[in-house]
Amino acid sequence: MKKLGSQTIKFENPPSIIGTGTIVGPKEGQGRFKEYYDLILKDSIYQEKSWEKAETKILKEAVEMAIKNSKVPTDKIEYLIAGDLLNQIVSAGFAARELGLPFLGIYGACSTIAQGALLGSMIVDGGFAENLVAAVSSHFCTAERQFRFPLELGNQRKPTSQWTVTGAGAMVISSQIQNPRITFATVGKVIDMGEADPNDMGTAMAPAAVDTILRHFQDTGKTPDDYDLILTGDLGSIGKDIAEELLKQKGYDISNKYSDCGVLIFYPEQDVHAGASGCACAAVVTCGYIYKEMLNGKYNRVLLVATGALMSTTSTQQGETIPCIAHAISIENL
């Protein structure tokens, strides 16, 4: 059996990440991981007529970069698993139209990259494909107008609000044997702790991350000592503190190896309030910084726990609370 406990998969032949592609907007390009991105846009509209077109373009190009970096010929890529934040995941669908790859569109809000990587790894380890791409995108300007306000509206952002990352990240997952490899995956449950404030995603999502991390440790018998780095997706500074404290209450002190992509990606002086969010948040950190530092050997065992808030503008306006999810993948140098 490849299944451990109730929610975790142990890959028999851990699939490898053999190439990644990352593109980010100009603001992200001034952030902490600027040396790790493949392309930093000068203008987030990227010479397109709309921001939605720009998002499609960066997703498509990130996939092409990942394939190029993997050195696998494009005709040997068997699936594209992709998603984004826009209604009916149009960025992914439209990018797939350009790429001409067999396409599986997925939605896990900001957790989508982990969802894509774990589904991709299941496909590869299951022998249904040799090579495939998992990719996501998000764009501040498309997300803002869909979820919040027009860009030029003179409103004040709340201190709990987070800044949607403009960017796209893609990884080629392959049955070729090379480091780093995806060894375990824990599929999260949807957790709703009754938070309803769309300006405070971190507080809403933290319990989902905690639930998945606990389940991962229980299912695998691992402890925080088995990892060099535990990285949540986009809890931001508030959600990160909450997750850390909740885990401590449950007997897992991860404080010395725990961080959050949403906290890391921007410098505090970049005025993003509680941090970053968006599908691309976990994706560009994982495909950029983490992947490259794993190749360099700085990290050898990373647990990525990408988090997502599964609400819509309609559900928010109707006063619904926010259901949240977190999926975990172990990325290890074997």
Partner: peptide
Amino acid sequence: QQDYKRFAKNKKPKP
């Protein structure tokens, strides 16, 4: 959920 709301409330920075 109510317990969590109380717990999280203190964590949120005020404007």
